[in-house]
């Protein structure tokens, strides 16, 4: 049941990110809702699901983007895993915690992606990348993360009640 939930969510999130959210741009950037799903999976279902959802989501992301297959899969998998590990200490105020985790995950992801996909190939315009892509994307994604978390939490609760 849970696996079906995450597979379906991944497909929907990739489709949403490439369509509706691409039109809802804020100073030229769209939010990274695919990464939010991975963070939410790690927080709701623990490190195992975080890693599995991250790997699957990342692989799908790589395939849909049509570039090097594997880079996003690795990054997403480790992000999902570490979010699952680190958020274990937080029981209360999860809706605020999700802000913090999304921001941290997004920053880590953007910097690593930029490093592996651009910097080592000679795109060294760090100031431009930070001011025009990484920071705006970080802010936008963090804002979007809370409603996504609330929604996914509700669906997850519903599924868990049905299963047990």
């Amino acid at each position: 049941m849970k696996i079906a939930f995450y597979i379906f969510s991944s497909l929907v999130f990739v489709a949403l990110q490439t369509t509706i959210f691409r039109e809802l741009t804020f100073i030229g950037v769209a939010p990274q809702i695919c990464l939010v799903l991975v963070v939410v999976a790690g927080m709701l279902s623990g490190k195992e699901w975080g890693a599995i959802c991250g790997a699957g989501m990342g692989l799908l992301y790589d395939i849909v983007s049509g570039r090097i297959v594997g880079l996003n899969a690795i990054l997403f998998m480790y992000i999902g895993f570490f979010v699952g590990v680190l958020c274990k200490g937080f029981f209360k105020h999860k809706r605020i915690v999700v802000l913090f985790f999304t921001a941290a995950a997004e920053l880590t992801y953007s910097i690593l992606y930029y490093f592996f996909a651009f910097f080592i190939w000679g795109q060294m315009n760090i100031i431009y990348v930070f001011s025009k892509i990484i920071v705006p994307e970080l802010l936008y994604t963090t804002v979007v993360a809370v409603p996504i978390y609330v929604l996914m939490e509700k669906i997850n609760d519903y599924i868990e009640r049905k299963t047990f």
């Binding site: 490190k47 195992e48 890693a51 599995i52 790997a55 594997g70 690795i74």
Partner: peptide, 19 residues
């Protein structure tokens, strides 16, 4: 989970290398 993550990492690295 550790084994899964390590093996998936290797698989993805192979994907990247063969790309």
């Amino acid at each position: 989970i550790a084994v899964l993550i390590i093996s998936l990492t290797i698989v993805f690295l192979v994907f990247m290398a063969s790309y």
